[in-house]
Design a protein around this nucleic acid. Structure first.
Lengths: 361, 361
DNA sequence: TTGAAAGCGGTACCAG
DNA sequence: CTGGTACCGCTTTCAA
């Protein structure tokens, strides 16, 4: 491994000069600079990142913590993060958090001079004690998809999104609308589901409808669990005519349950999701969309600004309703459009039959 | 920031002893060890990663390079990589490669002491000159999803997969089978599409069918491009009755084209994909499956072994055909099963209509 | 079993 | 403009 000293000797200069050339200092005579550049080229020299980090105190790397693989929406946010960080020459160190406890584990490891310059947390939030350590250590923290009182965050108005979805269903005449979301005291401390539920309840209240607690379904954030909950509620005597799910993943679970029970979508059951991940587009799901990639990019930009020493502030991104094919008029009084939608809803592939029909070598 | 020296003073020992405790050296009297542990606890000390890396020459971080966001299958592989690396205490530094040139850029940056201990490249391969530098620098390299003569790689037999898919279509009586894949001289040097095409041609030859060059379609690796190519070929006088796509993404493009032209799947057109990503399960796509997450895990394990100084060897993973709903008998002589499949194929949601039906705030 | 001290490979201050 | 040199914080001999 060739070092800066060898380059200096080769070029017949001191190490300080080589360092200046490396860092683009203007205080180097052009002729000298060229000699150094030649030496670097000749020796195939590349600076040692660890040494530089130790000396400068900055590693040009940021930690990104998130449940990447259990939440598809997180991936799309990551894309924005990656693009912005790479553009600024920062390395992206990925910390995947799937199981309860891993989260704290990672934050703790990071909070002590982990060699990372900053922390971007997607969809979850470090515990207060770690936040304090980050602050003391001068490590900037930005939250994406998780509002916070004191930490700069990129977030959306979950309550507004919940209202948007629910009002859409109300406009189609639905009165018995179920909410399908996460456990609210979950291990990771996700709060978005709760916010969306609040919007749902507010919209119902505004419409003068008394919320039926039996229609508020909560479970693990997984398609299968969502399908089970939906199936159960559809089997009751007085089932809902619509479901608002706090995520597309759960909405697809609801579609699966409807399919399994022979309920037509949106004829017998309307379904609204949340996030507008790629799956939603593919499933033709009506959903509340938020700018996913942009949220990541925005968070990364905030982090870069913080690293430059600028003060940064949280930012709220807009949500909007994207109407596709899983919502329609309630009850019998449906128009032509509703019947059309029903037609394709009826014969959609059965989720439950899609796998393992036949498998060979 | 608290350093090892402060811990040493607090514990009344030398820094060397603290270092020994930190690294679990057995050569420390238990009583001393406890004093040190207490001091560490008390001061909230955490070792500086950069200093340690500089001193040991190992950063406990590996670079993972891949086109993460344009190839969904890569994400599933990443999951395996992440799991294994995290389990071994290694950091995962993500380098996303989307545009041509970025790839070389990253490899070049890494090949000169980037401070990373190893490199795992998914679906693409560093140029020879960089591989040499990695070898000289003692940086282990493992390729996932890209066979290589001299670099250890986790790969599958693309030709066998291509045969599997094509033979499945032949068994259903198809004779005019189109191949839909990537440009073979693509910027990133992906080779899997070419291998799968070779298997396709071999299967046709074995069946005594002369391959029609006009049925070999190649384009960018994108759903829209695949749809365009498929639409074009279906519009010709003597269209194929089946399409074998070199990826699920492209297969879904083919389905989209069939839909747009009113061709029933699998009644009028059978489609086979490749990879078995989540989208394939959702679309009910018949496809050639390979263990995606496992390939990543396997590659990461190989890398860890190499980092331990062990010799490692490439490994081949199996492929298998997963039959779902997009393939059926060719021509008129279809049985009941085929008609059934047709029924749901007919009314699937139109891809082209799924977006922007109505969008509001 | 422990401590002192020599690196690891840069950066940046201070002289010249 | 340039060179010498004191760190940065940890690991690892070497001696005690």
């Amino acid at each position: 491994m060739v070092t800066i000293a060898e380059v200096a000797k080769q070029a017949g200069v001191g190490v300080a000069t080589v360092s200046r050339v490396l860092n683009g200092s203007p205080a180097v005579r052009e002729k000298t600079r060229l000699r150094v550049v030649d030496a670097i080229e000749e020796l195939g020299y590349a600076p040692n990142a660890a040494a530089r980090a130790l000396s400068t105190g900055r590693s040009l790397a940021v930690a990104v913590v998130a449940p990447f693989f259990t939440r598809p929406s997180v991936m799309e946010r990551l894309r924005g993060v990656s693009r912005v960080l790479a553009g600024a020459g920062y390395q992206l160190v990925l910390f995947d958090v799937e199981r309860p406890g891993e989260e704290e584990e990672y934050f703790r490891r990071l909070s002590g001079g982990g060699g990372l310059d900053a922390l971007l947390s997607i969809s979850l939030c470090p515990p207060e004690c770690d936040l304090e350590r980050f602050a003391q250590a001068g490590v900037p923290v930005v939250l994406v998809d998780h509002p916070h009182a004191s930490v700069p965050a990129v977030h959306t108005d979950d309550e507004a999104g919940g209202r948007l979805a629910t009002e859409h269903l109300l406009e189609h005449g639905h009165r018995r609308i179920a909410f399908l979301g996460d456990f609210e005291h979950n291990y990771h401390g996700f709060t978005s589901s709760a916010g969306r539920r609040a919007g749902y309840e507010a919209a119902l209240a505004d419409a003068g409808i008394e919320a039926d607690p039996a229609l508020v379904l909560r479970g693990p954030h997984a398609q299968a669990a969502a399908a089970a909950l939906t199936g159960e509620v559809l089997d009751r005597p007085n089932p809902p005519t619509a479901v608002f799910a706090a995520s597309d993943t759960q909405a697809v679970g609801a579609l699966e349950a409807a399919e399994a029970l022979g309920a037509r979508v949106p004829g017998d059951l309307s379904v609204v999701g949340y996030d507008d991940i790629e799956l939603a587009r593919h499933a033709g799901l009506t959903t509340v969309a938020q700018p996913l990639e942009e949220s990541g990019a925005c968070g990364a930009e905030m982090l870069l600004n913080a690293l430059e020493g600028r003060r940064i502030h949280g930012r709220q991104l807009p949500v909007r309703l994207v109407v596709r094919h899983t919502t329609g008029a309630c009850g019998k009084n449906r128009g032509r459009a509703a019947r059309h939608q029903e037609a394709w809803g009826r014969d959609r592939p059965r989720q439950s039959r899609q796998d393992g029909l036949r498998v060979r070598s």
